[in-house]
Design a protein around this nucleic acid. Structure first.
Lengths: 335, 335
DNA sequence: CTGAAAGCGCTAACAC
DNA sequence: GTGTTAGCGCTTTCAG
């Protein structure tokens, strides 16, 4: 193994000089700098991560805490992850993957070990056991999602509430007076996932505001369930002409279900989805874009900032953006 | 921060003794052992990972190399991952996530840095740029998948060839004389993904062996494509009464497409899938089980073995297992 | 602008 | 069965 001492000898300088060339923490004459660089190249030197960690008490690794909960749509989750990892690399950080349901325990261990400098915590629930832990550990961390108490933590989130409202406004603007909301599977609400609740709350509030009748239902992800739910929605509220869908996995089946029940999209029922753009594009659905990549990127960007001591906003909320596609038609005629 | 010296002082022993209590690398009187353990507990001591790494040149971290290629079904991929991570933890290992498409480059860097002790490489292609690299880096590594040249590497794979064949045999045993194969999206074949090719090859060979007519087609993952592909398959080979599907994402749409084309399952067309059991269960499909968790677990188990110097088999091939469900009916009457 | 040297926290000989 | 001590490879004072 090539060590810093080898490089120093080869370049005819002190080890510290090599170190400084690498870190840039003090000025070096360009002459020695190039000599050192050349030696590094020739010898194929790579600083040892462990040694650097002991000496500097910095490891340049962040923990990515990724609970895999029932009902979360994995393709969407992976968008967050890949964006976060790519951004980490752009900041010279590596990513330790912490999945497994032992979230809190692993968090504690990894922090105590000094294996990571900070955490990026995904899928945070309203009352999340990890939140008090994070606060007490005193390592920089950024949450994707929003716990009930934010207090000193850095959070990034999509504005699901505004997203739900935006869908309603779009439908109301088109003249729809009676609309439905198809949400996540019911387990998701049962565990108090903030994003699901907030989208629904935004939907409900906007419907009230606009004086539009509304019904909301959870939806499971197989065809039979979607069909059953849509059927029951149309039965409970027969005047329904608009549907807001916040469930990527069910999205596939919604159009088919409506067709099976004799409703055409968008002529009989207009549909607006909350989902990543690619999916909406593929299914040709009017949608409010869920900016998964952007969330992952932003979150890691904020973590990198905190790791280098820069201050960050407590809450970054990404605004919704609606794109019109084939599933919502032109303005309804007044009936 | 609590160090090993603090613990030693508190317990009235030498630092090395504390270390030995922790590692178990030499015998300790149970009296001092309990005293040390108690001090560790009281002080809340956790050995510093970096320091341990420098001193022992072992980091207890493995790199999980996870290329996210177009056409791979993420829910299935995540099964591998979670099983691998859980198994890693069971061996006291942590997992560094290496995604991003800079596979080879990151591999090199992380190995040179001594950030990991070994690699678990997923989704290996027949001619994979990472394979020669892995061989030359000389760190233990385990591949999920199988490159063309195995030569000194440890590989784990599902026996896709046997799986394809098993599906054919099942259909042939039921009396089907003309069958079709719906495969992965065409990009997957274009990049020489071994698993896709082998499943198809196994299917084709078995069909020949059994004297059964067969056609194979790639399938994209949206409803329109599935419908179009099934239609074209039934047109090319109108006598088709059996279908083997190796595409988790398309699976959703197959039954619907057949129905749309006026064929009932299993009366007109029998369907056998190659997919995880849970999915087959949900869709009530006869299937050959893709043991994703088991692959992830086995792979990490092998890596752990290699890291502790134990030898491993060069190739572990998990055998297929077929489960009958509603999508293949009873034996056909001789026509 | 550069060098010498004292650690960082831990492991693993080498003692006894 | 336990203690002493010399590193592991790097960073960062301190000194010039």
């Amino acid at each position: 193994m090539v060590t810093i001492a080898d490089v120093a000898r080869h370049a005819g300088v002190a080890p510290s000089t090599v170190s400084y060339v690498l870190t840039g923490r003090r000025s070096i004459s360009s002459r020695t700098r190039t000599r050192v660089r050349e030696s590094i190249r020739q010898l194929g030197y790579h600083p040892n991560a462990g040694a650097r960690a002991v000496a500097s008490s910095r490891v340049d690794v962040v923990g990515l805490v990724l609970p895999l909960r029932p009902g979360v749509h994995l393709p969407v989750l992976m968008r967050f992850v890949t964006a976060a990892v790519a951004t980490a690399r752009a900041h010279g950080l590596d990513v330790l993957l912490m999945t497994a349901d032992r979230g809190a325990q692993d968090l504690r261990r990894v922090a105590a070990d000094a294996q990571v400098d900070g955490f990026l915590v995904m899928d945070v629930e309203l009352h999340d056991e990890r939140v008090p832990l994070l606060r007490q550990m005193g390592r920089p961390s950024v949450l994707i999602g929003r716990p009930a108490v934010v207090n000193g933590l850095t959070c990034v989130d999509f504005d699901f509430e505004a997203a739900g409202a935006r869908c309603v406004d779009h439908l109301a603007d088109l003249g729809h007076r009676c609309i439905g909301f198809l949400g996540s599977p019911s387990v998701v609400y049962q565990r108090n996932a903030g994003y699901a609740q907030r989208a629904m709350a935004g939907f409900g509030a906007a419907a009230m505001r606009r004086g539009v009748a509304s019904t909301a239902l959870p939806v499971e992800c197989d065809y039979e369930s979607v069909l059953a739910t849509v059927r029951s929605l149309l039965r409970t509220q027969p005047a329904t002409t608009g549907l807001v869908v916040h469930n990527e996995a069910a999205l596939n089946w919604v159009a088919a279900s409506l067709r099976a029940l004799g409703r055409r999209v968008p002529d009989d029922v207009a549909v607006v989805a909350i989902c990543p753009d690619e999916l909406a594009e593929q299914l040709r659905l009017t949608s409010v874009r869920l900016p998964a990549e952007e969330l992952g990127r932003q979150a890691m960007e904020l973590l990198a900032a905190r790791l280098s001591g820069r201050p960050t906003a407590a809450l970054t909320l990404l605004p919704p953006k609606l794109s019109c596609r084939a599933s919502t038609g032109p303005r309804l005629r007044r009936v």
